[in-house]
Nucleic acid binder design. Structure first.
Lengths: 249, 249
DNA sequence: CGCTATGTTGACTGATATCAAGAGCCGTGG
DNA sequence: CCACGGCTCTTGATATCAGTCAACATAGCG
């Protein structure tokens, strides 16, 4: 049951924002940034809260400041598939569209930097640095979606899990700008069920394959949600991918 | 084995182009169109020809004028998944990227309206009507990719086939601006194997499910590549989708 | 200290893949 | 004109991977 988001009175200034150089505003200059700064509004969601239901009116677009959100689609009999995983700096919403096409859920505590849709669309139309960045981000998302198609269409359950973990490693590397090599640790922002919805599997299969990868020494587990990767290279080999799993940044 | 495309000397003028109001140039005005007109170069590919291999340098971007092209990705052991199906008016290539990320293949005879990448990027930077349209098209492709994720992750083989045929119906409707209702016919631009690559199945399963849908009266076949849909509504019911299969335009 | 979420494991089932054979179609060339 | 070879497609028999159903374990929380 969706509850209203908490509206924070204290907002971080744009020039001190942790996602300043990766979000949709990344290329903006000081005057443009000032305009965004004046229009922005932080919203906080608790883990498990629904941000919007598919089909509901969507009066704002937003950047993920911290936390994780998912986009999901559902068939008439309830089968659900995740179609988007939004991490810090990712953009939420589609300019020009008034209704949400997907159900958006906070899977961890989530902080969004929101803009009223209409004013943002206006700004987008007269700010090339904003629209160019949004195009770039959308093209990146399309590439990610196409990698995801390959995963869903052709990979085994074991390869799916390994690929997913490798993707998380790369996303973390992109954010911290540390190239993954040797031993590294990631925390899973998703339940087994959410992982299953990402990977087109059941939660039982996810659990079994995680156990198998652990027994084979590909991963180590420190609790259910904290994974240690002894060798990133080995993980990528298990993912079935052609090259080295794509660019690390 | 890729052969050089045939370069046509006779090019259709932009204002008589069949994809004029749907392609990336759709919103351009006469002066912008003149600039595109001067820069464009038609290329012709025969059915089966490879347009670019994944990883090869890509010196042009293009609009599909007529025919069908596919984007495919491959795992190290040869499993392949289609990740894009380009129909007339669709855009090929990514501005800002010099190497092709996917293997592009003409599955029918194919006519491309090509632009050298660098000049096109320059034009894109100083022509909002061009960049806005490209953003719009990219967002549409992302939506289509997300619908595809649901198909690959959660649908049965039978539902996948029905969904694919419904998608083709809708694309045809979008192009001819005729709303699909009652009896309608489509021609399959793909072999059974290419359909399998689209749907994450084997060609044998595609064949079996086509036969099953035929025996159940959901489709009729006039040769292998010409399908008659007695009832679009029934087809959508077989696709497993929630609503009516999304907007028809 | 139960209660509910989440996660693991086991036994069994079933949908789709795999392997294999053959049919239909088309272009080529004797 | 017909025979041949190469595709594409269909159909059948069998194997296998992941799903389903069920029981239990663990952890966080009121």
């Amino acid at each position: 049951m969706p509850q209203d988001a908490v509206l924070l009175t204290t907002q971080v200034a744009c020039d001190k924002c942790p996602i300043r150089n990766r979000a949709v505003c990344a290329h903006c200059e000081s005057d443009e940034l000032a305009e965004l700064e004046a229009a922005k509004l932080y919203r906080n969601y608790e883990a498990g809260q629904v941000v919007t239901w598919s089909g509901d009116p969507m009066e704002f677009v937003a950047s993920v400041v911290s936390g994780v959100a998912t986009l999901t689609q559902t068939l008439e009999d309830g089968r659900t598939q995740m179609v988007g995983l939004l991490l810090p700096s990712d953009f939420l919403g589609r300019p020009g569209r008034q209704k949400a096409s997907y159900t958006v859920t906070a899977t961890t505590d989530l902080l969004l930097c929101c803009f009223q849709r209409r004013p943002f669309e206006n700004l987008l139309n007269r700010t090339p640095r904003l629209s160019t960045r949004l195009l770039e981000m959308t093209l990146d998302e399309l590439d990610a979606a196409r990698e995801w198609l390959l995963l869903l269409g052709r990979k085994s359950a074991r390869e799916k899990i390994a690929s997913f973990l490798a993707i998380l490693c790369r996303r973390e590397a992109a954010l911290t700008k540390v190239k993954p090599n040797g031993r590294l640790a990631i925390s899973l922002p998703l339940t087994r069920e959410a992982m299953a919805d990402y990977l087109g599997l059941t939660l039982e299969t996810v659990s079994r394959q995680m156990t198998a990868l652990r027994k084979d020494g590909v991963i180590e587990m420190d609790g259910k949600r904290h994974i240690i990767i002894p060798s990133y290279h080995l993980l990528v080999e298990e993912s079935g991918d052609d090259a080295d799993g794509g660019p690390l940044i």
